[in-house]
């Protein structure tokens, strides 16, 4: 057994004076509000700041609230379609940017794909509002298609990054070896490339799903009347009466996000 105690004594950030209090402060700032939100979602009374005892009444109320049901269903349906479309596009983009010879403008392609990460969301939202308004006027159509297109577009980089990372960490000789062993390009993709990049695809899908599920700004600007998603519904609620029902919905939404993000980390962190 090697003894690493000598090395650890050289420099350890944990020993810097004040480290513990700063770290504690940051964690309190980050998690205290969330913990309070979750705790008060189980409050018996209607007060958001005064504990009256444990109850699931707000969960039950939210569950039976038809507006919540409708918004939740719309959110899931939108996130599922947008994430699937975005992941499909991202997979193809990732293959094209890692499995071809270097070409001119490759950096430009990366930048273009990742545009939604750089342009402020509110700018995209306003731009989409104006752009879709023109189309809505011209066609008279106001369906979900606008939200699906918008969500797909901003989900693409979130799906693209883990898939590309996965492909870049994959040994290219594996595909050469498959070709050497009589696999056609299609069989090489099906039997070697796809199974190996699969964790990246699933991770990308989950990240895209969560990002779509949580989105407020773009959705708020793009949606037509009556197309509330869960986050925009909650925003609307806050403008009126605030009850712990919002806490309950938030808690469920957070739980779903945490599950997906945790799965994302499990998938991307796993070594071969």
């Amino acid at each position: 057994m090697a003894d690493f105690s000598l090395f650890s004594r050289r420099f350890d950030v944990k020993r810097v004076p004040g480290f513990a209090s700063v770290a504690l402060g940051v964690f309190v700032m980050l998690y205290m509000p969330v913990i309070l939100l979750v705790v008060y979602s189980f409050n018996k009374g209607t007060n958001l700041a005064f504990w009256e005892g444990f109850s699931l009444r707000w969960y039950v109320q939210a569950y039976h609230n038809e507006a919540v049901q409708e918004a939740a269903f719309r959110s899931l349906y939108l996130a599922l379609i947008a994430a699937t479309l975005a992941t499909t596009a991202a997979t193809m983009a990732a293959l094209a940017t890692t499995r071809t010879k270097k070409f001119r403008g490759q950096m430009l392609i990366y930048t273009l794909i990742n545009q939604p990460l750089m342009v402020p969301e509110i700018v995209t939202a306003v731009a989409l509002l104006i752009f879709f308004a023109m189309i809505k006027v011209a066609t008279g159509h106001t369906g979900m298609i606008y939200l699906i297109v918008a969500h797909t577009a901003f989900c693409i980089p979130f799906a693209y990054l883990p898939i590309r990372a996965r492909l870049e960490s994959m040994d290219l000789t594996l595909e050469t070896a498959a070709a050497d062993l009589y696999a056609s390009p299609w069989m090489t993709f099906r039997r070697v490339t796809l199974p190996l990049m699969w964790p990246g695809i699933v991770a990308g899908l989950m990240l895209a799903f969560v990002v779509s599920l949580d989105d407020v700004v773009i959705t708020e600007f793009v949606k037509s009347a009556g197309q509330e998603t869960l986050p925009t519904f909650m925003l609307g609620q806050l403008r009126r009466v605030v009850t712990p029902e919002v806490n309950a919905i938030s808690t469920v939404l957070m739980a779903v996000s945490v599950i997906f993000v945790a799965m994302f980390f499990v998938l991307t962190g796993r070594k071969n």
């Binding site: 000789t173 594996l174 070896a177 050497d180 070697v192 190996l196 071969n272």
Partner: peptide, 13 residues
């Protein structure tokens, strides 16, 4: 013709 690669290139899955 088949090849034995320098890094073996065995399929990890």
């Amino acid at each position: 013709v088949n090849t034995v690669f320098q890094n073996y290139a065995l399929f990890p899955h």
